[in-house]
C-alpha cells in the first residue's frame, strides 16, 4: 500500500505534462521576481548616486546654515524649518476636516445620489495634478484672502491637496470597524455620537493616522504648488509665525540642482538625503503606529 502510493507519486512527478506545468510555473515566478527587482534596482541606483554625491556635504554646518552663494558655506536650515512649518500647519488643517468628512460619509450620510456625487468628487480630486491646487491656492488664499506669500497660504493649499487622500484613507479605516461593535454600543443605549466617539473612532484611529502620515509624506515632497503660491528660493531666516515668508526643502533642492556650478549639484544631493531622512522618519512613525495597534488588538 505504502509502496504503491510512493510509486504513483513518483510517476506523477515524472509525467511530462506535469513537468511542463511546473517549469512554466517556476518561470513565471522568476519573471515576477525580475520585475520586482526592477523597481528595487532603480531605487538602489538612485540612492547610490544621491549618497555618493551628497554624503560628503552632509554635516552639522549644512543643517544649521542658511543658503549661500558660496557652496562651502551653504546650508539648508531655512528649507528644513520651512518644510516642518508647512507640514505641521497642513496637518492642523487637513486632519480634523478630513476625519470629520470621512466620519460623516461613513457613519451619518444615508446612501443617496448626493452622497455618491460627493464620493465621486473626492475620488476625482485625489487625482488632480498638484499644480492645479497651486493655482487655486494662489487665487483663493494668496490673493482673495490676502494671506500673501505666507507659510499659512502654503499650508492651506497643501491641506487642500492632501484632503482627498486623507478622507479616502479614513473612510477605508472606518469601514473596517466591525458592525458588531456599533450594534453592541447601541444595544447598551449609546447614542450615535457616543458610539462614534468611544468605539468607531478609537478602533479606526491607527488606520487613519497611517493614511494621514503617508499623505503628509507626499505633501512634503511637493514643489509645484508651493512655487505657484509664492514660496521663495532664497530665504535667510526661519519663519517665526504663520504669516512669514518661507521656502521649503524641495524648492531649495531644485534651486541648487539648476545652478551651473557642480558644487551646488552636490549640495542638492545632500538636500535630497535630508528630505529622504524626514520621509523615512514619517513613514517610520506610520509603521510604528501600525505595529502598536496590531499588538493592542491582540
Amino acid at each position: 500500500m505504502e509502496a504503491s502510493r510512493i510509486q504513483s507519486r513518483a510517476s506523477l512527478a515524472t509525467s511530462p505534462l506535469l513537468r511542463r506545468r511546473r517549469i512554466l510555473s517556476t518561470m513565471f515566478q522568476w519573471l515576477c521576481l525580475l520585475f520586482t527587482l526592477c523597481g528595487v534596482l532603480f531605487l538602489v541606483a538612485l540612492l547610490y548616486q544621491v549618497l555618493r554625491d551628497g554624503l560628503g556635504h552632509l554635516d552639522w554646518q549644512f543643517l544649521s546654515s542658511f543658503p549661500s552663494r558660496k557652496p562651502e558655506l551653504a546650508g539648508i536650515k531655512s528649507g528644513i524649518y520651512g518644510s516642518l512649518w508647512l507640514i505641521s500647519l497642513t496637518a492642523v488643517f487637513a486632519v480634523p476636516i478630513g476625519v470629520a468628512a470621512a466620519l460623516y460619509l461613513e457613519e451619518y450620510a444615508k446612501p443617496s445620489r448626493v452622497r455618491t456625487l460627493i464620493q465621486i468628487n473626492i475620488a476625482n480630486l485625489a487625482g488632480v495634478p498638484s499644480i492645479v491646487y497651486g493655482i487655486l491656492g494662489l487665487a483663493i488664499f494668496v490673493r482673495a484672502l490676502t494671506l500673501d506669500r505666507s507659510v499659512l497660504a502654503g499650508s492651506l493649499t497643501m491641506a487642500l491637496l492632501v484632503l482627498p487622500v486623507i478622507i479616502i484613507a479614513a473612510q477605508e479605516s472606518i469601514r473596517g470597524v466591525p458592525g458588531s461593535l456599533r450594534q453592541a454600543a447601541y444595544a447598551l443605549g449609546a447614542t450615535r455620537w457616543q458610539t462614534v466617539r468611544d468605539h468607531v473612532l478609537p478602533s479606526a484611529l491607527p488606520g487613519i493616522l497611517t493614511g494621514v502620515i503617508l499623505s503628509l509624506s507626499r505633501a512634503i515632497g511637493e514643489t509645484a504648488p508651493l512655487i505657484m503660491v509664492g514660496a521663495y528660493s532664497y530665504v535667510a531666516f526661519v519663519p517665526t509665525g504663520p504669516m512669514d515668508d518661507f521656502t521649503a526643502l524641495p524648492i531649495q533642492i531644485y534651486n541648487w540642482a539648476a545652478r551651473p556650478q557642480a558644487e551646488f549639484h552636490a549640495l542638492a544631493a545632500a538636500g535630497i538625503i535630508v528630505l529622504l531622512c524626514i520621509l523615512f522618519l514619517m513613514n517610520g512613525v506610520a509603521v510604528l503606529i501600525r505595529y502598536r495597534s496590531a499588538r493592542s488588538l491582540k
Binding site: Y81, A91, P202, L209, F237, V238, T240, R292, S293
Partner: peptide, 29 residues
C-alpha cells in the same frame, strides 16, 4: 479601556510630535 488608552496615547504622541516641530520652528527665529 486599555485599547482606548493606547489609542489616545498615540494621538497624544502624534499631536505632541507636531507641536514639537512647531516649537522647533519657533526656536531659531
Amino acid at each position: 479601556t486599555t485599547r482606548l488608552l493606547s489609542s489616545d496615547f498615540k494621538l497624544l504622541a502624534l499631536v505632541s510630535f507636531f507641536a514639537l516641530l512647531t516649537f522647533i520652528g519657533c526656536g531659531g527665529g
